[in-house]
Design a protein around this nucleic acid. Structure first.
Lengths: 357, 357
DNA sequence: TGCGCTTCTTGGAGCGCTCCAATCCCTGGC
DNA sequence: GCCAGGGATTGGAGCGCTCCAAGAAGCGCA
């Protein structure tokens, strides 16, 4: 246990005031309401601040004014670019309104998530945006009801309370499958993921619905478990072992990582993608764009989700007539070479070069 | 601009005290020094806290006690798993000492990094761990000299002030090249990255040093620019176009992402990896483990770096005889299939399956 | 010269807690 | 029965700021 170190001695507003030859109140005005201070006084005060290296104590400010301009974001798994995109969207909007954003990574751990919510609440942050876990709905709801402004992203409250921004996952699955069907594929499979995850179930249902709309379309859910590359690699080997006419000609993969693994093992086995098997992933993360064969995908609108969530929170903070609501964002199909062969030839060679380094 | 909403009315310590029939001081003691409160009083107070849903105001606590148990971490690019690993290491240690950690993503933007440092300083966080940018050394040094406890990670202060934890990048490059040389490779190249980055230069020098140690070893730095997949893909195409005897038989790639792209395009061109060209990356991130052909790499000890940084900071906060210092961590070579063919055959098929989903 | 304005500036009260000296109360020993 | 001693509790001062009512200063005009 670390000893509690006394606060190092920083210059106070008092010191600035003395040096500038004005009162504390005037220094405060320079900082919070510069317009009402005469230009030369302002100038003198700013010089004193500079000279002393005065750093205004937010803690005292927050206590005195009962206000904080910091928003907390608790992501589920910041290693996933989707959750980091959400953070970017939040930062963008917060910035425009003069708020700051700090992040916390709950790392898919309910206890850690609770701890961060507690910290942000105790620290009297203006509000918080959280990507809840199934296990933390109660905690989140509890704090929300106690008056702490909270907006959920990615997962809405089961009871529909408060604000939330979610993606229509069923629609995502539908888009992916529909795309393959429109390309003339008729032997579809949905692959990857755990049925325990509601997002996975929704995507599956959406894909199923799309298949049901098209006469003569076959559809199956493959019992692959796993969301990531290795699971995709494994499925690819299984598919490669099948006779060509038994193989699906279109695969809706639960994630881009899964799709990346799948495509890699299909290609390695000499199966042409997309000619023989077309693949669509989900999420539009780095796996999709930086793959040998850029992957068609249904993009999770992470940045947009962050923006909308921040807007909802800021509206609530502004106070005038905010009504809680859930915003459903639609994902977007992004067609790349894993479903439609590009002009440059088969097998993804030569590779289109994304912009940048 | 959002209107400043007044603090919602939360129960105060005063309210808890009244309900429990004790004084403010006793409630404070229950929270901060439970041992000196008699068991039944303590019980009564805790019940009152529970009943009212009292959430202790950290802001007032921080102001009154002049202490904060929050540490800030400003990462350069949290999308890079290395920086997130550092965060994990910090959290682990902070947790053990009763500190909380909040994150900020400077997104390789000096202005954002400055903003977060300012926020953490103004908020009187106990201290901060920062992965500085070349452009923010002054800012960091300035705040450090003003008495704000700061530990740098990944990049030390040019003037050697304060605490820092860094990786011996030169050694990393050396390890990678040495490994290839030990495998008998004699036509080495170092590829990728921007020479403006000191880490890249160091890795290159290390590789060069290793080559110089071995008689008959050829070495060249390829002027590829870029750290990520597309740059690697591009280089792969160039190498594939060369006559076999002109091609390097060993490549030290600046990053795993670069190596992933490189390997993918070599394999697509029918060049065998590692038989014809062995590749070693850097960083040990997801690109390395989740690739078709798991990539040999020099691992950045991210978690360890976070741990050490947190230890240094906590030591400084504890106050008793802390001496600033820079800790140099050594990276570790991880041999996978991109440099040494595994038993299961050439061309990375079938693929070894990492554990987990 | 004096009055009424406007524009700036001032300094006290208070934010919700911690800290600590002072007080209270209970127990046990003589 | 009385007092010393120690544990438990109390409440005032103060953390560094904001906010605001009130005062000071400057100005134009009759």
């Amino acid at each position: 246990m670390a000893t509690d170190r006394p606060q190092r001695d920083k210059p106070l507003m008092e010191d600035v005031a003395r040096l500038a030859g004005v009162s504390r109140g005037t220094v405060s005005n320079v900082l919070n309401n510069p317009a009402i201070v005469s230009p030369d006084t302002r100038e003198r005060v700013l010089r004193a601040i500079e000279e002393l290296g005065f750093v205004r104590n937010q803690v005292a400010l927050a206590l005195a004014s009962g206000r904080t301009r910091t928003i907390g974001y608790v992501g589920t798994d910041l290693a996933n670019s989707y959750f980091l995109d959400i953070a970017r969207g939040i930062e963008e909007r917060a910035d425009e309104s003069g708020y700051r954003v700090v992040l916390a990574n709950s790392d898919v751990d309910a206890a850690k998530q609770r701890g961060y919510l507690e910290l942000f609440d105790e620290s009297r942050f203006a509000g918080v945006i959280v990507a809840p876990l199934e296990a933390t709905h109660d905690e989140v709801g509890h704090r929300h009801r106690a008056g702490f402004p909270i907006v959920r992203v990615n997962l809405a409250d089961p009871r529909g309370e408060g604000c939330a921004v979610v993606v229509d996952e069923e629609h995502s699955g539908y888009l992916a499958a529909r795309h393959l069907l429109d390309l003339g594929r008729r032997r579809l499979v949905f692959a990857g993921g755990f049925p325990s995850l509601s997002a996975v179930r929704s995507r599956l249902h959406g894909a199923e619905r799309a298949a049901a709309e098209v006469a003569g379309a076959g559809f199956a859910a493959i019992g692959a478990t796993g969301l990531r590359v290795p699971a995709g690699l494994a499925l690819g080997r299984e598919l490669a072992a099948l006779a060509p006419h038994e193989r699906p000609d279109g695969v809706v993969a639960v994630s881009d990582a899964f799709a990346a693994g799948l495509i890699q093992s299909l290609l390695s086995a000499g199966i042409r993608v997309p000619d023989e098997v077309a693949v669509v992933g989900h999420d539009d993360n780095t796996f999709a764009t930086e793959h040998v064969l850029p992957i068609s995908t249904v993009s999770q609108p992470g940045v947009e989700m962050g923006r909308v969530a921040a807007d909802l929170l800021l509206e609530e903070l502004a106070g005038d007539g905010h009504a809680h609501r859930t915003v459903v964002l639609e994902s977007r199909l992004i067609v790349r070479s894993s479903s439609v062969a590009d002009d440059s030839g088969v097998h993804g060679t030569p590779f289109p070069e994304p912009a940048g380094a």
